[in-house]
Design a protein around this nucleic acid. Sequence first.
DNA 1: TCTGGGGTCCTAGGACCC
DNA 2: TCTGGGGTCCTAGGACCC
Length: 425
Amino acid sequence: MPVALVDCNSFYASCEQVFQPRLQGRAVVVLSNNDGCVVARSREAKALGIKMGEPWFQARRRLQGQAEAVTALSSNYALYADMSNRVMRILGRFSPRQEVYSIDESFLALDGLPGPPAVIGERMRATVLGWTGLPVCVGIGPTKTLAKLANHLAKQHLAWAGVCDLEALEAGEVERLLAPIPVGEVWGVGARLAQRLARLGIDTALDLRRAPPAQVRRHSSVMLERTALELRGIACLDLEMVSPDKQQIRCSRTFGATVSSLAELTEAITSFTSRAAEKLRAQQGEAAAILVEIRSSAFRRDAAPYAASRVVPLAAPTADTRALVAAARAGLNRIYKPGPAYAKAGVILLDLSRAAERQPDLFAEPTADARSQALMATLDQINRRFGRGSLTLANARPAPRWRRREQFRSPRYTTRLDELPVAHC
DNA sequence: TCTGGGGTCCTAGGACCC
DNA sequence: TCTGGGGTCCTAGGACCC
């Protein structure tokens, strides 16, 4: 049952390089929201020792003179999401069974397809590169966990030209490849588990593959037991071809500049709730509760950190921005205290369900629901057509102080007419 | 000066019930 | 001094992922 994991190399950085060819072969990093941390690095940036998740101001300081050699860009999610859609559609042509696992990764079932898996893998790679300009690596194995590991190997061994098929190898050869891989590289094993496993003498992917599953379960959990079985080639995880509805929807941001006033926090919370409500309606959902959260910076030494959150239940499940905002504001009023310099706020929609499956409220005004739905549908339509945030609730301002910093964002080449790339011939 | 955002699942332990 | 047994449900926290 061969399954492939196709993963874009340095996805965000590669997207930037496609549209700015002068960046190819250079050290490029893409920064998180607010230009805070490094979230993607080109091969050359990795070679300079820049770490994933490292705060950019620290990396820059550490690199000193070399920092000039690095191009740092703010994240351009509109561009990445569009490029991701293109890659996923291309990969979908190769197999009827595809799981889009993340913005830059896809699992594909290869059984029943004509031709050797490795050859299909090579074609996938060549097609994605030719049609989008994005380099990908393909890992193939009998289980998802082994396909992930094969992908890791394909990225390491340049001579393999981006494709690694573990099923084509003898068992002894597979074990020889797994032996040097630290157990923390295995899908499902993070830093904490790796530490605990080290105490049991399990240091490598091969060690975990050989460990008795029952013992693994005793020392940890069923999840790790499944991982151990998958490493042996026993499939425990299915391909999930339809993505299930979200169980919670979150929208939170670190502010570009800290804020202290209730008025500004209210503005931010209103804006975040509106965005979350849009996502909720996109999956035809309703929320029965909303969590509001505000916090000061955890990194400041000069003041005690303050963080507070509150869950506010809704009178009835709803997807109406106005009802959700009212609840969020009520929650905010309960947790706000003057004084702290707030650095971050957010909301989470909870207890989600499908709108169509709700029991009607015995005491509700029968027409109110239909009117709310019509209004929200119109709001969403206008914002889809004219751009996010074109129509908002009355207290949102265009350029608030708390808005994120994005000093180095590239144009949205593929989704905005006025930002199309122009050829200079 | 400057430290992301958005998800999932599992488990332990408390509350509550008979 | 000595304080039952067994079950369900919910939540907080911890771990993981990209």
